[in-house]
């Protein structure tokens, strides 16, 4: 028994880092989605929520944490994808059908990741670093994100792209959330099917919560 092992470079260790960072990001998107829904309470509630988040110095810690998690998730996933692709240099001429097939959702995880990466960059440009409108509530001037959201979601191109990106995010989560437990070793004949359902429900809730905004502002507002 001589082979050397290093957790951080091993496939299992790297999968676990991808899983843990992915799980943290899943919690972030859930929180983000719930925050977005405040827009249905009132423009003021939404704007003040945004102001409360960005006006504390803790936002820098949170942003640094998010960037780190996102960066780790992406970089290690890219590294693993390269390893996986090297592990099968010659592809099969035919893909399996029926019982032995792999679902297209799991085959396209990397492409889903790329779509989400592009979306996140554009999303930050549009909203975080986008047009700044201001509004004053009780003497406090805050950023009028509500107005920006309404404007952006009047553009059909942006609405379609946002919708597609959120469906892709949902697919990504539908694999990821339930997969975390298997990657960390919590498989169980009775509980694993329950985890799978929880993962699917989580993905659906996040996805639907996010697309509610563009659909509402484009078709109803």
């Amino acid at each position: 028994m001589a082979a050397k092992s290093s957790y951080l470079t091993s496939t299992i260790g790297q999968k676990q880092i991808v899983a843990l960072s992915g799980l943290s990001l899943s919690l972030f998107v859930l929180a983000h989605m719930l925050g977005n829904l405040l827009i249905f309470v009132s423009p003021e509630a939404y704007n003040l929520y945004g102001h409360a988040l960005t006006s504390t110095p803790l936002i820098y810690v949170a942003e640094l944490g998010l960037v780190t998690l996102f960066g780790l998730h992406v970089l290690i996933a890219v590294n693993l994808t390269v390893k996986n692709s090297v592990a099968r240099p010659n592809k099969y001429a035919v893909a399996a059908e029926g019982a032995k097939a792999t679902s297209w959702v799991q085959k396209s995880l990397f492409i889903q990741g790329l779509v989400i990466l592009v979306f996140v960059i554009l999303h930050l440009i549009t909203f975080k670093f986008g047009q700044v409108y201001e509004v004053t509530y009780d003497g406090t001037t805050v950023r009028d994100l509500h107005r920006l959201v309404v404007e952006v979601f009047q553009e059909p191109g942006y609405v379609v792209w946002y919708f597609i990106a959120m469906v892709v995010l949902g697919l990504h989560l539908s694999h990821g959330v339930s997969s975390v437990l298997q990657t960390f070793g919590a498989a169980h004949p009775r509980l694993t099917p329950v985890f799978k359902k929880v993962g699917l429900a989580y993905a659906a809730i996040v996805s639907i919560g996010f697309v509610a905004l563009p659909i509402y502002f484009y078709f109803i507002y």
Partner: peptide
């Protein structure tokens, strides 16, 4: 040189 597990 085997790949990683995606839990498929």
């Amino acid at each position: 040189g085997f790949g990683a597990c995606t839990n498929t």
